[in-house]
Design a protein around this nucleic acid. Structure first.
Lengths: 244, 244
DNA sequence: ACAGCAAGTTGAACACGTTCAAGTGGAGTG
DNA sequence: CACTCCACTTGAACGTGTTCAACTTGCTGT
């Protein structure tokens, strides 16, 4: 409190801050920001989260420690940049999968497999990352406002998958399925992080088993006998996670 | 490395270290240990995890900072003592519930409600706690070796619940149900931690809705039409979490 | 008694994340 | 050109968790 030189400290407004990303900005500040992000992402990937010190990031980016804190409120905030990087790659890999005319199950499995493939090199790091993501207030939490965009992006993948599938299912389930699949993916990630088998082999096995099971369940939802199961499940989901 | 005075630093062997707990030990070391735990647990509960410094814990316990580290490898390790405290209370509250002749659903709901009640005063703290518990290597992780005893204790509650219920169900499901319920409880805790509604009202609502649903599902498992659903689900579970 | 020894204890020191008062520089204005 | 202003930058300093070499204490065997 009581800074004289500028009344409000926080991320700079810059030239053109579009709703998503900050593509068109070549100002000095943005260049510095990018340099810090680049160093942080590289070092996180190379030596892990803990061993990467803020001093090392700053030195690598050619700036002072304090300067890094001008752009990012905490070391944790830099993690979300790392996260975004990987999510962008996942999205790129998933695009051709969605476009392919493969079945619901095959495409779902492919989406999950690509996600694992993208994260695979950072399995150890992810262990620390999940610890940060799990705490409610954290901006990296999958439920946080800050993650709203990333969350929407992820669900949109499943939305497109559901919209372009020929599988018959309960219409109410169809409306909620993208979110359910996102939740399932979240669970898979948690499982993957804790998977100590070499190459996370077991997680891959789980995908191969769980996807056909899900496909079976989804298809079963339109049968009369499964109606109460479906309806009550959706009611529960609506309490758990209202709105749509 | 190269301490002269003692060859091995780590928790002291003490007089009688029983497999579970360390009940019968009144040696000097154990008294110090207890004092540190008492101070830590109290301070964690009063001012939260972050705001409780190791210096404060040591001062409150009347020992030096270094001495606290003689008994506990890290601040995180003290959290598990706090956790154990609450779990013991949960167990005590659950005992009469199990003994009551109430239905499967009513007793399950009561068990979950008591768990929430025990943790309720520490909702804010739990947010930080889950961040520690979520990281794979952590001794506080519900999947860690260190938590094996606590895990066994928790599943034993559900084991007793399942063993004393009159509800008819698939026998293979019955064998796995205690572990499934433990998993469900884990999920509930994660949900509760992220529940920002006043008094975690929504989590309580979820319990009221989810328990009858579970009861319905369990009962349905013995029907022929649900066999493939049950069997495939159990196969998946066996991949996810082998052994019994 | 007394030496020997290990459990127990100490507090200074270290590295880290984070903060902040004090600068610097370059674009806009007269 | 000089002046002002503010986005940007700096590095020392703070509080934290953690480590460690040195010290103290009480027991055990002789």
């Amino acid at each position: 409190m009581g800074s004289v030189s500028h009344t409000d400290n926080g991320p700079p407004p810059a030239v053109t801050t579009t709703a998503r990303g900050r593509a068109a900005d070549t100002s000095r500040g943005e260049q510095t920001r990018q340099a810090i992000v680049a160093s942080a992402v590289r070092l996180f990937g190379e030596v892990g989260y803990e061993k990467t010190t803020m001093r090392a990031i700053a030195a690598d980016a050619g700036v002072s420690v304090g300067n890094a804190y001008y752009y990012f409120p905490a070391k944790e905030a830099l993690v979300s940049e790392f996260y975004l990087d990987l999510q962008r790659e996942h999205l790129a890999r998933v695009e051709p999968v969605l476009a392919s005319g493969a079945s619901f199950g095959d495409r779902l499995a492919a989406i999950l497999r690509e996600g694992i493939a993208v994260w695979s090199p950072h399995h150890a790091f992810a262990g620390r990352f999940i610890g940060i993501a799990a705490v409610p207030g954290s901006p990296v939490s999958p439920f946080s406002d800050e993650s709203a965009e990333a969350r929407a992006l992820a669900t949109s993948i499943f939305q497109r998958l559901v919209d372009t599938t020929e599988v018959k299912m309960d219409p109410q389930l169809r409306a909620r399925l993208p979110q359910l699949l996102w939740l399932a993916q979240l669970g898979l990630v948690v499982y993957w992080v804790h998977d100590g088998t070499p190459g996370q082999r077991r997680t891959r096995k789980v995908v191969e088993l769980a996807v056909p099971y899900l496909e079976y369940l989804v298809g079963a939802s339109r049968l009369k006998i499964f109606k109460p199961l479906t309806t009550r499940g959706l009611t529960l989901l609506d309490t758990l996670w209202p709105a749509g």
